[in-house]
Every structure is written in structure tokens, then in C-alpha cells.
Amino acid sequence: MRRLIFIAMLAVAGSAQVRAQDAAAGEKVFGTCKLCHQIGENAKNGVGPNLNGVIGRKSGSVPGYSYSVANKESGITWDEATFREYIKDPKAKVPGTKMIYAGLKDEQKTNDLVAFLKQFDADGKKK
């Protein structure tokens, strides 16, 4: 019986580690995002807006980027929960967005991506 409880405790502890956010792994996930977005001190707008300070930023607010009307008028401020919902299925969260991305369905990769993005303030400096 003790052995079974110990194994169950290890399984629970192991699953907690899987759910932890890993910014280094998130940088790898961001590799896909790099096709359209930049982040960091020298980030510029490209096909998509730069993502400096995205967590905590109002949607449609990066100067110099031409957003869709849907994004500008969404009323969204990107907190973690909203970003997770959006990145899973951008067109479902903001119908009319011009972001062409099927979505990130893997929860662990999303956790890691959020950890990576949260490192950067609005000026692209790591916190």
C-alpha cells in the first residue's frame, strides 16, 4: 500500500513539473512566431506587430502597425488567460483578425511561450 501511495505521489509531482513554464523552451516555440513577429530591444513590426510587452498591452495598440478593425475594436487587454485563448485559435477569439495561424493547441508549449513573452517589457528589455 505504501508503495502505491509513493508511486501516486511521484506521478502527481511529475505532472506538476510538466506544467511549469519554461522560458527557454518557449523561445523555441517562438521560432514559429518569428515568421511574422519580432521581440527584443531591436524588434520591429513585420507581417505582425512586435510582441514587446504583449502581456498587459491593449490589443491593436503598437504604433506603426496596421491592425485589422477586429483587433483594434476587440477591447482586449492581453493578460495570460486571454492570450492563451487567442493563441489556441486566433480567428475564434477575434473574428476578422488578419493573423493567419491555425493555433497552438499544446498546453505545455503555450505555457512555455507565455513564459518567454513575459520576459520582455514594452521596450524589449528582459525584466
Score class of each variant (00 low, 15 high):
Thr97Pro: 00
Ile76Lys: 12
Val69Gly: 04
Lys91Asn: 09
Lys105Thr: 08
Lys72Arg: 15
Ser68Glu: 05
Asn71Cys: 03
Ile76Arg: 06
Tyr101Met: 14
Ser59Asn: 15
Pro63Ile: 00
Tyr86Gly: 07
Lys91Gln: 11
Val69Trp: 10
Gly64Arg: 08
Val69Ala: 07
Met99Ile: 14
Gly64Trp: 01
Lys72Asn: 14
Tyr65Leu: 04
Pro95Ser: 08
Val69Phe: 05
Lys72Pro: 02
Gly64Val: 02
Ala92Thr: 14
Ala92Gly: 06
Ile76Leu: 14
Val69Met: 08
Gly60Ala: 12
Tyr65Phe: 13
Ile100His: 10
Gly60His: 03
Tyr65Glu: 09
Met99His: 01
Asp79Gln: 07
Asp89Ile: 02
Thr82Met: 00
Trp78Phe: 04
Phe83Thr: 02
Gly96Ile: 12
Pro90Tyr: 09
Tyr67Ala: 13
Ser68Lys: 05
Lys91Ile: 12
Gln108Pro: 04
Ser74Glu: 08
Glu80Lys: 03
Gly60Arg: 07
Glu80Leu: 01
Pro95Phe: 10
Lys93Gly: 14
Lys91Arg: 11
Lys105Gly: 09
Gln108Asn: 14
Glu107Ser: 15
Gln108Ala: 14
Pro95Asp: 08
Pro95Ala: 11
Arg84Phe: 00
Lys98Gly: 13
Lys105Pro: 09
Tyr86Asp: 01
Asp106Lys: 03
Gly64Cys: 05
Pro63Cys: 06
Gln108Lys: 09
Ser66Tyr: 09
Lys72Tyr: 11
Lys88Arg: 14
Lys105Trp: 04
Gln108Phe: 09
Asp106Asn: 14
Glu80Ser: 05
Gly75Glu: 10
Thr97Met: 10
Glu85Met: 15
Val69Gln: 07
Gly60Met: 06
Asp79Cys: 00
Pro63Val: 01
Trp78Asn: 06
Tyr67Leu: 13
Thr110Trp: 01
Ala81Trp: 09
Thr110Ser: 11
Lys98Ala: 14
Arg84Tyr: 01
Ala70Leu: 09
Ser68Arg: 02
Tyr86Leu: 07
Pro95Leu: 10
Pro95Glu: 10
Ile76Glu: 06
Glu73Val: 05
Glu80Met: 08
Met99Thr: 05
Lys93Phe: 08
Gly64Asp: 09
Asp89Ser: 07
Val62Pro: 11
Lys93Asp: 06
Pro90Ala: 14
Asn71Phe: 00
Gly75Met: 02
Ile87Met: 09
Ile100Thr: 14
Thr82Gln: 04
Thr77Val: 11
Ser61Met: 12
Gly60Tyr: 01
Tyr67Met: 14
Lys98Ile: 15
Gly96Pro: 05
Val69Asp: 15
Ser61Phe: 07
Ser74Ile: 00
Glu85Asn: 12
Gly96Tyr: 13
Thr82Ala: 05
Phe83Asn: 02
Pro95Val: 09
Thr77Glu: 11
Ser68Ala: 15
Leu104Tyr: 07
Ala92Trp: 03
Tyr67Glu: 09
Ser68Ile: 08
Val69Pro: 02
Ile87Gly: 01
Ile76Asp: 06
Tyr101Ile: 13
Pro63Ser: 10
Glu85Tyr: 03
Phe83Glu: 00
Ser66Cys: 09
Ala102Asn: 03
Thr110Tyr: 00
Glu85Ile: 05
Thr97His: 00
Met99Arg: 02
Pro90Gln: 08
Thr77Gly: 05
Lys91Cys: 12
Gly103Val: 06
Ser74Leu: 02
Ile76Gln: 11
Pro95His: 10
Thr82Leu: 05
Val69Ser: 06
Ser61Thr: 01
Ser68Met: 06
Pro90Ile: 13
Asp89Lys: 02
Pro95Gly: 13
Leu104Arg: 12
Ile100Met: 15
Asp79Met: 03
